[in-house]
C-alpha cells in the first residue's frame, strides 16, 4: 500500500516548521517518527496534502530532570526512554510499545498528538497528570493531560500547533505498574491499566492514580477506584475491593477481540494486578 501524493518540507527550525504548518492549513500534518501517521497514510485513511517533517528541528529530543519533573522533548523516541528505571512508569510503558523497530522511530510527541485511545503513552500522561507544551507561530501554551484528549483521535492541539515538550512529575516515591493486555506482544492494548501508588509511612495508600487504555474514546482516569483506595491500607483485600470499581464510568468500544463487557471485566482484573504490583503487595 502506497500513500497518496503530498507536498513535503523539512524546515530547519521550529519557527519555520510552525509557519509551514500554518500555511498548509487543515490538511497539513507534522511528521516526526511517522509511526502513527504513515501507517494511516499507506492505507489512505489519512490523506494530508502537506507533510512538515520535523527531522531538522533542533533541540526537541531528550529527557531532562528539572525541579521534580521530567522535561521530555517532543521528538524523543520511545527507544530513548524504554527501560530507564529513573523515568519510572515512562520507562516501563515505553518498553511495551509495539516492537523495537517501532520504538526506534516513534516519538513521544507524535504518539500523544495522535491521540489514539489504544496507545499507551496518552494513558501514562493522564495518570501522571503531566502536561504538554504546544506552540504555534504566534504563541505557546500548556495543556494539561486531562484537557488534551477530547475524543477518538482528537486532541486539543490545533492544526497549526506542535507539541514541543512533555512534562511529567518524577513521582519518585510512587510505585508504578502498567498492565497491558494484548493477544500478541506486538499488538495494541486490548485494555491497558496504569497504576501509580504512593505508600504512606504507615503502609496505607497516601495517594493513587489509575488510568485506562482503550476503555473509552480517550484515555480515562478510574476515579472511583482511586477514591475507594485512597487512604485505605494497601492490603490485597482493599486493592481487590477498589479494583471492583474499575469499570465504573467507562464506555469501552467493542472490537474484534473484546466486547465492552469483556473489556470491563479485564479492566477490573488488570486494575487489581496493576495496583498490587505498584503497591508491592
Amino acid at each position: 500500500m502506497i500513500p497518496a501524493e503530498f507536498d513535503y518540507v523539512a524546515p530547519d527550525s521550529l519557527d519555520a516548521a510552525l509557519r509551514a504548518l500554518a500555511h498548509g492549513g487543515e490538511d497539513a500534518k507534522a511528521l516526526a517518527g511517522g509511526h502513527s501517521l504513515l501507517p494511516l497514510m499507506k492505507m489512505r485513511l489519512a490523506v494530508p496534502t502537506l507533510l512538515v517533517d520535523l527531522r531538522h528541528v533542533p533541540g526537541l529530543r531528550g529527557a531532562q530532570r528539572e525541579n521534580g519533573s521530567w522535561r521530555i522533548g517532543a521528538l524523543t523516541r520511545h527507544a530513548d526512554l524504554q527501560g530507564r528505571a529513573e523515568l519510572g512508569i515512562v520507562g516501563e510503558a515505553t518498553s511495551l510499545i509495539a516492537d523495537q523497530q517501532v520504538r526506534n522511530r516513534g516519538t513521544i510527541g507524535g504518539s500523544l498528538a495522535h491521540g489514539d485511545p489504544a496507545s499507551d503513552l496518552p494513558t501514562i500522561l493522564v495518570a501522571m497528570e503531566g502536561t504538554v507544551s504546544v506552540r504555534n507561530s504566534a504563541a505557546s501554551r500548556e495543556i494539561a493531560a486531562g484537557d488534551l484528549f477530547q475524543d477518538y483521535m482528537t486532541t486539543a492541539i490545533a492544526a497549526d500547533e506542535l507539541i514541543t515538550e512533555v512534562r511529567v512529575p518524577a513521582l519518585e516515591d510512587w510505585g508504578h505498574a502498567y498492565e497491558k493486555f494484548t493477544r500478541r506482544a506486538e499488538d495494541w492494548a486490548m485494555v491497558g491499566v496504569c497504576a501509580l501508588v504512593r505508600k504512606g509511612a504507615d503502609g496505607s495508600c497516601e495517594d493513587v492514580r489509575v488510568a485506562f487504555t482503550n476503555m473509552a474514546s480517550t484515555p480515562i482516569r478510574a476515579t472511583a477506584v482511586e477514591h475507594a483506595l485512597r487512604g485505605q491500607p494497601l492490603s490485597s483485600d482493599a486493592i481487590t475491593g477498589a479494583a471492583e470499581q474499575a469499570a465504573e464510568g467507562t464506555d469501552p468500544p467493542g472490537d474484534l477481540n473484546a466486547t465492552p463487557e469483556y473489556k470491563r471485566h479485564l479492566a477490573r482484573v488488570l486494575t487489581r494486578r496493576a495496583l498490587s504490583r505498584a503497591a508491592g503487595v
Binding site: 493477544r183 500478541r184 506482544a185 506486538e186 499488538d187 474484534l256
Partner: peptide, 14 residues
Amino acid sequence: TGTFVDYALPTAAE
C-alpha cells in the same frame, strides 16, 4: 481481519 494487525500470526514472543 484484513491485515496482519487483525489476522494474528504468532510471533516469537508467543
